[in-house]
Amino acid sequence: MSDPSLYTYESPLVGWEGGEPLSDEPIKDGPNAKSLPNSSPTHPSEAYNTFTSPISNDTRGGFDIHVYYVSSVPSELQFARGLHTRIRREFPELRIYRMFDEPVGPHPVGMFEVNVFDPKQFGAFVGWLVLNRGPLTALVHPNTGDDLRDHTQLATWMGQPYPLQLGALRAVLHKRRASQIAMAGNY
């Protein structure tokens, strides 16, 4: 996890100031009883169609989902292999990487990665994974261009979280920045 005080946060109401006051009186009857009444929708949120900035809407994919397993536990390894195959068959439109039985990057145990490219894929796949991940843990994180924050403060876990090797992630990011600086110097 990450210390939230390391970051600044824009008000969630930016762009929504000055609207009519919302009622705090719950609806009394019907299927919506006990819920709060919302304003009448004029159009669905654009977040149904594209990821909210600064989440990537390009070929990188908006979210990475890392599915973790302990390869030295035969039942976990077998389940992970089956899940990997099932995902490749049921969600062929997603980008699915090979299984890494050993730690790689900041990931402390075996894992495979799945990328989703739009909110509909995210909703379908993450909802499916909640029910089908079995004994495995999954890290879900956005791709905003801030890899450290994406893997920590903006990450969501399904199952028991694993401590990420953030030193390894920082080393990769440092190496990437050095390479970019060197490339810029060649022009």
Rank of each mutant, 00 (worst) to 15 (best):
Q121A: 14
D101C: 08
Q153T: 07
G167P: 06
N38S: 15
E20I: 02
A47V: 02
I87K: 01
D29A: 08
L77P: 01
I96N: 07
P21G: 06
D101I: 05
H174I: 11
E25C: 15
W157I: 09
E102N: 05
T156Q: 14
K34T: 12
V14D: 14
S71I: 04
P161A: 09
L13N: 07
V14G: 00
V104R: 06
G19N: 13
R176D: 10
S179V: 11
G15K: 09
L83M: 13
P44V: 13
Y68T: 02
Q165C: 12
E10D: 12
P92L: 06
P135Q: 11
L139I: 12
P108E: 10
A33V: 04
S11I: 15
G105S: 09
F117G: 00
T52Y: 03
P37R: 08
P142G: 05
E10P: 00
K34C: 04
H151L: 08
S2I: 10
I87E: 00
L77H: 13
I65C: 11
T8L: 13
V172H: 13
F125I: 00
P119V: 02
L131H: 06
G105L: 11
V116I: 14
G15A: 05
R133S: 14
G134H: 09
S5D: 11
L36I: 11
F51M: 03
D29G: 04
F91S: 01
P26W: 02
W16T: 10
T42M: 11
A124L: 14
L173Y: 02
F100V: 02
M99V: 13
G105T: 00
D64I: 04
R89Y: 05
Q160K: 12
R88Q: 14
T152E: 13
A124M: 05
V116Y: 01
L139K: 14
L131K: 15
N32T: 05
G145Q: 06
G127T: 10
A171G: 07
R170Y: 03
F112S: 00
V130R: 12
S2K: 10
P21I: 15
R133C: 05
L83W: 10
R98C: 00
E25Q: 15
F51P: 00
Y48W: 09
I55T: 12
Y48C: 11
G82D: 13
P106S: 02
N132W: 05
S40Q: 07
V67F: 02
Y7P: 03
S35L: 07
R95N: 00
D64M: 10
L36R: 12
P41Q: 08
I181M: 10
G134E: 14
V73F: 03
L173I: 04
N132Y: 15
F125M: 08
G61L: 02
P142R: 07
L169N: 03
V73Q: 14
L131S: 12
V104P: 00
S35I: 01
P41G: 09
T52V: 08
L131C: 11
N49C: 02
G145Y: 01
L154D: 12
L139E: 01
I65W: 00
V114W: 01
F117N: 05
G61N: 06
A168E: 08
R98M: 05
N132D: 08
R176Q: 08
V114G: 04
S45R: 03
V70P: 01
S5K: 15
L139F: 09
H43M: 07
Y69H: 15
S45T: 10
S35N: 13
W128Q: 03
S40K: 08
W157Y: 07
D29K: 14
L83I: 11
D58W: 10
I65T: 05
G123D: 11
I181C: 12
